[in-house]
Amino acid sequence: LGLPKMEVFQEYYGLPPPPGAIGPFLRLNPGDIVELTKAEAEQNWWEGRNTSTNEIGWFPCNRVKPY
């Protein structure tokens, strides 16, 4: 089972920042694999864990694709 995984195809370094105070941003590099921890199809921002860095944070969902 486990959490859904997504592959990063466009880098994200915190700009634009996540809206409001939902949480810290998650740095993404192309090729990184992100395990989704909070993701809803109608939301533009998802939370996940970058398996390369083990960091957890928020990122724009348009930077990832199904793994």
Rank of each mutant, 00 (worst) to 15 (best):
E40S: 11
W46C: 12
G2D: 15
E55S: 09
F9N: 10
G14H: 01
W46E: 00
G23Y: 07
G14E: 03
W46M: 10
F59M: 02
K65S: 07
P60T: 00
P19E: 06
E47I: 04
R49M: 09
G31C: 07
P30G: 10
Q43T: 11
P17C: 07
M6L: 06
P17S: 10
G23W: 10
N29H: 14
P24H: 13
N62A: 11
D32G: 01
P19T: 04
Y12S: 02
N44C: 07
Q10W: 07
T51F: 06
I22W: 13
K38F: 07
P4R: 15
W45K: 01
L36I: 10
E42G: 13
E42H: 15
N62Q: 10
K5F: 07
K38Q: 13
E40Y: 05
P66E: 15
T37N: 09
V64A: 06
E35P: 00
E40L: 08
E40D: 15
K65Y: 06
T37A: 06
Y12G: 02
P16N: 01
R27I: 10
V64Y: 01
L26G: 02
V34F: 03
L36V: 14
Y13V: 12
V64G: 03
V8A: 10
E7Y: 12
F9T: 12
V34D: 01
L36N: 04
F59N: 01
N50A: 02
T53R: 08
Q43C: 12
N44E: 15
L3Y: 13
I33R: 07
A41H: 05
C61G: 10
G31M: 05
Y13E: 11
G48I: 01
A41R: 13
L1A: 04
L26S: 03
I22D: 08
P17Q: 09
T37S: 10
V64N: 02
P18V: 06
N62Y: 05
E55P: 03
E35D: 14
F25H: 14
P66G: 09
A41V: 14
A39Q: 15
W46G: 03
G57W: 02
R27K: 13
L36G: 03
N50S: 07
P24N: 08
T51N: 10
W46N: 04
P17T: 13
L3D: 14
G23S: 08
E40H: 11
V64S: 02
V64M: 05
E55H: 09
N50D: 03
E47S: 08
P18K: 02
A41Y: 04
G57S: 00
T51V: 12
T37H: 14
P19I: 03
V34W: 02
E42C: 07
L36R: 06
K65R: 15
L15D: 13
L15Y: 09
I33C: 10
N54K: 08
Y12K: 02
G20M: 11
P17R: 04
A41M: 12
E42I: 07
I22G: 10
P60Q: 00
G48S: 01
F9L: 07
K5L: 13
L28D: 04
Q43A: 13
I22L: 14
P18H: 03
P19S: 06
Y12E: 01
V34K: 02
T37R: 11
I33G: 04
N62M: 09
G20I: 03
P19V: 05
F59A: 00
Q43F: 08
G57V: 02
Y13C: 10
L1S: 15
W46T: 04
V8I: 02
P60D: 00
Q10L: 11
F59K: 00
